[in-house]
Design a protein around this nucleic acid. Sequence first.
DNA 1: GCTATTGATGACTTGTGAGTCAGCAGTCGC
DNA 2: GCGACTGCTGACTCACAAGTCATCAATAGC
Lengths: 212, 212
Amino acid sequence: MAEDREPRFRRRKTARPGEIIAAALEVFAERGFAAARLADIAHRAGVSKAALYLYFPDKDALFRAVVGEAIAPNFVELRVMARAYEGPFAALAPLLLERIARAATTTRLPAVAKMIIGESRNFPQLARVWHDQIVSGAAALVSDLIAEAQARGEIKPGRPRFHAFSLIGPMLMGLLWRETFEPIGAEPIDLAALARQHAATVLSGMLAETGR
Amino acid sequence: MAEDREPRFRRRKTARPGEIIAAALEVFAERGFAAARLADIAHRAGVSKAALYLYFPDKDALFRAVVGEAIAPNFVELRVMARAYEGPFAALAPLLLERIARAATTTRLPAVAKMIIGESRNFPQLARVWHDQIVSGAAALVSDLIAEAQARGEIKPGRPRFHAFSLIGPMLMGLLWRETFEPIGAEPIDLAALARQHAATVLSGMLAETGR
DNA sequence: GCTATTGATGACTTGTGAGTCAGCAGTCGC
DNA sequence: GCGACTGCTGACTCACAAGTCATCAATAGC
């Protein structure tokens, strides 16, 4: 009776890494790098802690894998979208902000961003991975889009990098507000509405007179 | 011979708390809350670890004291300055942004802000202290200034809170960039120049037509 | 079926840092 | 000067989490 009970574990060499990375993304996002327990990640992935070490040499390597496999692809997609867009900057910018607002509610990205910001001093190698794989590319993309729009006469003069900060900064602030203060009961913020009002405000300030 | 050597320690009941708070601010700013070692704080304050517990019951209480004694007063001062200002919002806003840029280079405030953002999930009580003592007041101040400027017809309609994000967000982003990515060799950012360009851009977008 | 291979485990070691405590040593009052 | 008070210390305990290892058990190949 009940001789056909489930085996205590199965051998699934190829499926494990992906499952572990998914579990690690969850736990890193919830607790930050230092406070994330490998035991928690293992439990959530349905394996023992020791099994993690069959696939990743240490906690750092696991984090790098998370950034590379689970985060970076989203940005590649964004880049492709922005590059494929044909039309005035005044129409692209609201789409961009709205997409950020949406990503903030549907992905773990804001939590990971918060983690990087908070732990960069103690784990500079994390900041480096994040910077090299994500941030520098994204910053260059937005700056380039602005520089090109300036070349077309759509946008006022001014350093493209600063214009990029003017455009993106408020969304980052909203996203961090949501992550940091809403859990403790602060007044929530409607990121989609912020995206709309900020787009209107900042574009009105950035567009060249001829582009109005 | 050498009988008058310094005593191994002195009893200085009233001076200790301030020295400990100053040391704690340094260490918390450098390492974050979780990674800050009480032994380091004690060493930098020139006392033993056990001595900390004569003045503060635990690490949390020490952190609360740091926020209350070393951080909050700066904001009170800011509030007084902004309230005392007489004149159009278009002149006040650049002053405000420039002051943020300056504070970012002369105080530990950005490091502490980064710490709060990064560790709020694991230590919600820190986020609460920070929110209640600093952020909610500052946010309300800026929102109120904007609402009053709208009432005077200087600024376009729109939710004052979102306008506040449009104004402050890019400075926050610049400040976090400096804290997070400059230590690892990323391209530095000139916060004063960012403040000037962003002020020009966003004011041009926010000011009512009549106010130009 | 049988066996070699290797994916997977539970119990272990090690390092670290918060918080504690018995007693020492400045310093105040006389 | 000298006791009494108490600020202060060094050495301790305890808890927790990264990383290791001897060994087991699922399964691929024959």
